[in-house]
Design a protein around this nucleic acid. Structure first.
Lengths: 328, 328
DNA sequence: CTGAAAGCGCTAACAC
DNA sequence: GTGTTAGCGCTTTCAG
């Protein structure tokens, strides 16, 4: 930049004014602007983000702290976030919390906030309460997406887990199912609560299974369910990953879906439609939520109005081929 | 930092020496070190990465440019890279090339290089030749992973596509298959070439299908294959995503796998083992390759020796339940 | 409309 | 062993 100031015979500050792109009133003459612009192009000028950041203005970096990048769900979320961010000219800095409740790691993730104009926290972090608190210390705006319980004082974008679960259970009971089990995960308590609430707490012993949110976890949970004195005729999985695991486990044991067992997932990840059989599941509006989160962050940044906002979207049921009336 | 210098009554430079953590010879006395350290803790001091970056030292940021984050393969890659990077204290800055051959977007991705100590380029970018050239302009080290053809002058980590494809085809022919088709994708020409080479170019018309690297793409390709006068008895898919699509398509048409059709994938993504039936596939050593890439980048950074290095790993065949002898 | 100059937080010579 | 000093590249008053 100094170079191009010298070449054009203009002061560095003028160059800055022109190159920073801001409307900056009507202060620069057309001619100098052209000269500077062309010189910049010729020199292949690129602004140095560190200098910008240091000076206190925008970094154009958005920090993203993900609960666990291993989870396919968060994988697609990051992809969508990245696109949404790019639309506003922002790039993403990734902080994987690694699913560990290790405070040190969480802290490290928070450190990245210093680079960034805003932070997006993806997933449920109630196991690591310090993370959000630490984040509040930093002065950057924070948006929480899919954080189970809306936390006071944070902008957040959530899905209506309760309504969604009830929708799925309505579908199953409409089909005639009475023996419906849940396969869940610690980080998804809200969905579990909704399940229990639906049945007024009258749920058979063993009909709520927990496991790791992996394919194997789902298969293992199904095995435990099948070992029950009265195995369920339908399984509602708290995530598609678990549901696919259940599908896999059923196939391994020779149980045909949906003839002998109905399975419902949650998320509608791309592979849900491609499963065998195609999975009936609750469609999570991932793109909408990610976009909303980014927009919330960017809006907070530009308005400079720090009013926390909370949004809740709905997950609709997509009926495919993994559900049918119970046998008999 | 100035604050904590004032509080402890020490010069800022001393504070820097202590806080930057570098061994810095034996220059600081134990006592001042302790004083400074505790003051820093009390003040909640956090180094400012921009200042660091501006000053020319490490940012602890690694740039990652991904071919297409929508692809589940690259999703898990990013997760693994993130973990590997964190092990060395680095965070990731994400640049999604969005699969578009749009030069502008690619350029934007390159811009991010200015933030970073090194860049990792993930996937095949031969359609966007300018990207790599632009990257060479920047002075940061660049490592290419899964870039189809090793490019002169770039450090790279690749998989031996040719050997892998031959391994899969050996398996299929050993089972007795003669009519073997390939479902591929433009960005995976090396795998296609290996397929053709294996048969000495004597491949039936229509036995090489291309489509989008999505589940639907795989299903569509299978439909075209089934419409052939002599449909193949086995399908080798260039990715697991395509293979799952083929599985899905087969189920939709009532073709049972592996009794009537054998399917082999490539990548061994987590969902391959959970598919119905479990997918026989080539196991991509994703974790090893990602770790190797990060280590290559970090090593280049610390040795400051810029010798490009090329590594090639093998993909071994994992036989599961989607392959069997042909019908009859 | 443009120039001069200060300084963001940090590191690295170079002195003492 | 520690203090002084000069920037890194950029934005931003404040004067002209």
């Amino acid at each position: 930049m100094k170079d191009i100031a010298r070449v054009t015979g203009v002061a560095q500050s003028t160059v800055s004014r022109i190159l920073s792109g801001r409307p900056d009133a009507i202060s620069v003459s057309e001619e100098t602007r052209r000269r500077v612009l062309s010189a910049a192009l010729a020199h292949g000028y690129r602004p140095n983000p560190h200098a910008r950041g240091l000076r206190g203005s925008r970094t154009m970096l958005l920090g993203v702290i993900v609960r666990d990048l291993t989870d396919p769900f968060f994988g697609v979320v990051v992809g969508v976030l990245s696109r949404a961010a790019k639309k506003h000219g922002y790039s993403l800095v990734l902080g994987d919390a690694q699913g560990e409740p290790d405070e040190a790691i969480a802290l490290a993730a928070v450190l990245e906030a210093r680079h960034c104009d805003a932070m997006v926290v993806v997933g449920d972090f109630r196991e690591q309460p310090r993370l959000l608190d630490d984040l509040k210390t930093e002065e950057v705006p924070v948006v929480a997406v899919w954080h189970g319980a809306p936390r006071h004082g944070f902008a957040s974008v959530s899905v209506d887990n309760r309504a969604a679960i009830h929708r799925a259970l309505d579908h199953l009971t409409d089909l005639g199912h009475k023996a419906i089990a849940l396969v869940g995960h610690v980080s998804l308590q809200e969905r579990e609560r909704a399940f229990l609430e639906y049945f007024g707490g009258r749920v058979s012993r063993g009909y709520v299974q927990h496991d790791e949110n992996t394919f194997e976890g789902g298969a293992a949970a199904l095995r435990r369910l099948r070992a029950l004195p009265e195995p369920p005729t339908a399984v509602l999985a708290a995530t598609d990953v678990l549901a696919i695991g259940v599908l896999h486990g059923a196939a391994a044991e020779g149980i045909s879906v949906p003839a002998h067992l109905s399975v419902v997932g949650f998320d509608d990840l791309p592979f849900a439609a491609a499963a065998v059989p195609p999975l009936t599941t609750l469609h999570m509006p991932i793109a909408e939520m990610a976009t909303a989160a980014i927009e919330l962050a960017v809006a907070t940044l530009s308005n400079n109005t720090r009013k926390p906002k909370e949004q809740t979207l709905q997950a609709e049921l997509v009926v495919r081929a993994s559900t049918a009336p119970p046998p008999e």
